[in-house]
Design a protein around this nucleic acid. Structure first.
Lengths: 359, 359
DNA sequence: AATTGTTGCTTCATCGATTGAGCAAAGAGG
DNA sequence: CCTCTTTGCTCAATCGATGAAGCAACAATT
């Protein structure tokens, strides 16, 4: 390394004295507008080389302090423990960077207090825009943002003060419910109402899904009682407990189940295993959300996968279009068939034959 | 809202003129050392109230520019698509905040180029410390950091230039292999070598796990051929393809499998299903990593869960102790039995009885 | 009355990058 | 040879928060 020992980081002033030039020339070269500022390409090259050698990195704090836009985009997200939020976060980072923005993400554990604190911190870091994903009180966050002159957008759960991008929960749930009911008819030869389990009754998505659930039942001529609807919360333990309580009251859970998230599905599967039903093929399940392993669980589970890339695409479109009105854009989720089979029939047959021959 | 319409954010100067005082008094009050600076409690109260009313948020860019320590701690992480990294990220955020640090995390998709760019960006944001999680070239990042006078720590995969906290992969793999071999004996009545699948042969963890895998075999008097070891990469498709190729060569994969990650397990399960083996109870699997749904898959799968809280605890201890030597701390993973059964036997029996009675 | 101490502030330089304004030197045009 | 333009830079103010140094007003001490 040619770099001298230094406790402090290299600044444009260090580079300037090394290059025998001024800090403003260095600045101009390093942020790319040296042509506009009529710096010779020789000097530009020299400075670039020096910066490289010295391992220079712009002090963003100083840079952002001076500029009007930070190009930082913040996102708050409830949890990292499922594929839905995982892929939201991963795609968000990617798409933000592709647009020259710096993403910062923070997890708020579905805690309203933490959401507010996180939002305040993000504002301190001068975000240009804040995305509230699955926030319990998105309007509160929008208020904080607009007080600071910062845009905000709601994702996954809608708000009333900022634009929102969400899944089409009603249609998705209606279609999923219909599928589960048909599977029940086919597999169990029965046409009974399903059990709805998981989620918070107070949140918009759960309410819409329950509406779709009801609609599908009535369209198929099945009536559902209030007892079949258990929006018991998101944690796996809550679903387990809700099922336990049902049984304790002497009620056998319906054999067809609409599970409101993979997290709740975790609890349902645990409960089923515990109740000795894991191997019985007489439980028919559908889940609003996707997980690769859940998709491979013994019984065929219908899974609706929310269309994360499309949702984020819409979201960035809104940002670029400068949308500030509280519109709600609904993105259709991906239904099981649309996805197509995992492999073609021919491929599967070939693999099976090869496996058997080898054995 | 009493707040006036403003395009700009409120600064300490705005608050100062509103309070009829100076900016430095406002600063002293808002960052809590007003007693040290002998500001009267009346003025302090007045300023605090005004700040509240105006929805003031410190401009971190300005604040950090002035201070010597940023209290920002960065982490780069390969993916968000599994429970291991998900819980690392979630716990890391939590523990960082608990220590008064501001966590920023970025996902680098196992791409060496992206890792370097991400590290450079984090240095730009003046992180005090950078954690490289599962980095392909952690030493490169350590070099960049030390050039900027920033500490760095490796997590999950070790480096040679900075302290590292990793799982005890050798012992974990040895124990897991032993378990799978025993399960094979019990369930299949055979004592054949297992298949090792997934991961990168070049990474330290995979190499250590292969070493443990071999050790366990030799301890149990089973010899493993080179052909049984397939470190084919991490993506599910890679595991699928590796199995396909094995079969294409006329080799039947071993019925006992050591799968190197849940991501690889996804591919293995898909392949087994495709090959028509998903229902056969004659496949015995163990996985180095944990996933709640994988744990519920038909065949009993032994899963080793890496001890994320313990690893992060060690990591923060190192940070606080100012450790800079390239020591490697190994944290024992959680073996299946240590976790205990999901529910007690009594509870399970009670639930089963209730379920049957209700039905 | 003179000195010293304390309280409660204000002033101002500073962190590093940015950018409008300005200026010297070289080249072009007459 | 003189003016005007272009080229290639430098100067200095600025962003908002911070904290050392300083200062006025009053109280306490000799």
């Amino acid at each position: 390394m040619t770099r001298p020992k230094q406790a402090k980081r290299t600044t444009i002033y260090d580079l300037a004295s090394l290059a025998g030039t001024s800090a403003s020339a260095v600045s101009a070269v390093l942020n790319g507008n040296w042509k506009k500022r009529r710096i010779s390409s020789q000097l530009a090259e020299k400075i670039t080389r020096l910066a490289e050698e010295q391992g220079y990195a712009t002090n963003m704090q100083a840079s952002l302090l001076r500029r009007d836009k930070s190009h930082i985009i913040g996102m708050i997200v409830p949890k990292y423990d499922n594929r839905y939020f995982g892929s939201i976060v991963e795609s968000f980072e990617d798409m933000a960077r592709a647009r020259g923005l710096f993403p910062i993400i923070t997890c708020t554990r579905r805690d309203p207090q933490l959401e507010v604190e996180a939002a305040r911190t993000m504002l301190s870091y001068q975000v240009d825009c804040l995305i509230s994903t699955g926030a319990t009180d998105p309007d509160r966050i929008t208020e904080m943002c607009s007080a600071a002159g910062v845009r905000s957008i709601n994702l996954d759960l809608p708000g009333t003060l900022a634009p929102s991008v969400i899944s089409d929960n009603f249609e998705g749930a209606r279609e999923l419910t219909r599928k589960i009911l048909l599977n029940c008819e086919r597999q169990l030869n029965e046409k009974n109402p399903l059990l709805f389990i998981g989620g918070r009754g107070s949140d918009h998505n759960t309410a819409e899904r329950i509406r779709g659930f009801r609609q599908a039942h009535s369209e198929m001529g099945v009536s559902v009682s209030e007892e079949n609807i258990l929006p018991c919360g998101y944690a796996p333990e809550k679903a387990e407990k809700a099922l336990d309580e049902l049984v304790a009251r002497g009620v056998l859970p319906a054999k067809g189940m609409f599970v409101n998230s993979t997290i709740s599905l975790e609890g349902v599967m645990r409960w089923l295993r515990r109740a000795g039903a894991i191997d019985r093929q007489d439980v028919v399940i559908g889940c609003f959300d996707w997980d690769p392993f859940a998709a491979l669980l013994g019984h065929h589970i219908e899974m609706v996968r929310q269309n994360v890339p499309a949702m984020l695409e819409k979201m960035f479109e809104m940002i670029e279009a400068g949308q500030t009105k509280p519109v709600v854009v609904q993105v259709p989720p991906i239904m099981p068939d649309e996805e197509g089979p995992l492999v073609s029939r021919e491929e599967a047959l070939k693999a099976q034959t090869a496996y058997r021959n080898a054995g």
